[in-house]
Amino acid sequence: MKKIALALTAVAAMTGSASAADLAARPYVKAPMAAPVANWTGFYVFGGAGGGLSNSDQSIVSTTTGTPLTITQRQGGSGWFGTVGLGYDWQFNSTWVAGVFADGQFGSIRGTVQDPLLGLTGRQKLEDSWAAGVRLGWLVAPNVLSYVNGGYSGAHFGSTSFTNLAGGPTGLHLNGYNRNGWFVGGGVENSLNIFGISSPGWFMKTEYRSAFYDAKTRDEIVDATNLPTGVNSIRANSWNQTISTSLVYRFNWTGPVVAKY
């Protein structure tokens, strides 16, 4: 009996030692980390440039009675512009971002103005405009935002000097004027941390915008010399489409943040 008891004790001791050795040999495994999360909430500023198309539905009306004298015809134009602005975004869940913004555009988008009754033609220049609106975006990736926007807009159109069909002076012009309207658009904004280049806070956005300004009637003004035989009024609206690319700086952006345990 004593020999059997001694043998069982030895086996138990050897088994416990082996179990302790197995426990000591197990590798250490870190707790799982949370996925990277980028925060879009905060202020930003931007500046860029682009090109645009101008369309205008025009008709000739009587200066004295306002009676239409011609059917409505569409005239077009094109040009370039620069833009600067600022805004604030709020990321309200993992995939949606909403914000407010304001910007200004300045440049030279020129359209044609004509009076076929008097054989007059001229160029109208959209000199500058401004916009204030809201945008709603969906995060395609943590650092890529696809968005739509819309809001209120105002624009200043420069004066127009008319020439005849031969290109000579006519003694008539249209004064410059301001118009208010609305716009809708959309675009994509993405971080510039690409191809292994680190650019914290810097983004690029490309945006399409369509702005519409209601019709306004303007009288043809007689210059001091070369007086014409008669004058009319021109009634026209303005529809401008633009595409721009801007460099954006976000003040709060530090890149994706990894939560720690």
Score class of each variant (00 low, 15 high):
113 V>Y: 10
69 L>C: 09
139 L>Y: 12
81 F>N: 10
56 S>A: 07
41 T>R: 03
103 D>V: 07
53 L>C: 00
39 N>W: 12
140 V>W: 14
62 S>L: 01
122 G>I: 04
70 T>D: 02
61 V>R: 00
126 L>Q: 04
132 A>V: 08
49 A>F: 11
134 V>P: 13
51 G>E: 03
134 V>H: 06
49 A>M: 08
69 L>K: 01
39 N>F: 13
85 G>D: 11
132 A>Q: 01
86 L>G: 10
126 L>T: 00
101 F>Q: 12
141 A>F: 10
126 L>C: 01
133 G>K: 09
62 S>M: 00
114 Q>N: 04
91 Q>S: 03
109 I>K: 03
73 Q>T: 14
63 T>V: 10
84 V>T: 03
115 D>G: 01
119 G>M: 01
68 P>Y: 00
111 G>E: 04
94 S>N: 08
77 G>E: 14
94 S>G: 05
102 A>C: 09
141 A>Q: 10
68 P>S: 04
131 A>F: 14
109 I>D: 01
78 S>C: 05
80 W>L: 11
94 S>Q: 08
116 P>M: 09
109 I>A: 03
111 G>T: 01
64 T>L: 13
69 L>E: 15
95 T>F: 14
78 S>T: 09
99 G>S: 07
55 N>I: 07
75 Q>V: 03
106 F>K: 00
128 D>G: 03
134 V>D: 10
123 R>F: 15
91 Q>Y: 12
138 W>E: 07
92 F>I: 10
131 A>N: 12
116 P>Y: 02
62 S>A: 05
95 T>H: 12
66 G>A: 11
121 T>G: 07
124 Q>C: 02
112 T>V: 06
104 G>H: 06
106 F>E: 02
123 R>N: 11
48 G>H: 08
67 T>Y: 03
118 L>A: 05
119 G>V: 06
119 G>Y: 09
80 W>E: 13
56 S>G: 02
139 L>I: 06
91 Q>N: 04
45 V>L: 14
116 P>H: 09
57 D>R: 02
40 W>A: 04
78 S>E: 12
55 N>C: 08
78 S>R: 07
139 L>A: 04
99 G>Q: 03
72 T>D: 08
96 W>C: 10
134 V>N: 05
52 G>I: 07
93 N>Q: 10
55 N>R: 06
73 Q>E: 15
65 T>G: 03
61 V>L: 00
80 W>G: 13
56 S>H: 09
94 S>L: 07
67 T>R: 00
98 A>V: 07
110 R>F: 14
107 G>W: 15
75 Q>F: 15
89 D>G: 04
143 N>T: 13
102 A>G: 14
143 N>C: 06
89 D>S: 04
140 V>I: 12
91 Q>F: 12
133 G>T: 02
82 G>A: 12
86 L>N: 01
102 A>P: 05
102 A>L: 15
66 G>S: 10
93 N>P: 15
60 I>G: 00
109 I>C: 06
45 V>F: 15
43 F>P: 08
134 V>R: 05
66 G>I: 00
65 T>H: 10
84 V>N: 03
75 Q>M: 14
71 I>P: 07
109 I>M: 05
83 T>P: 10
138 W>V: 05
48 G>W: 12
127 E>S: 08
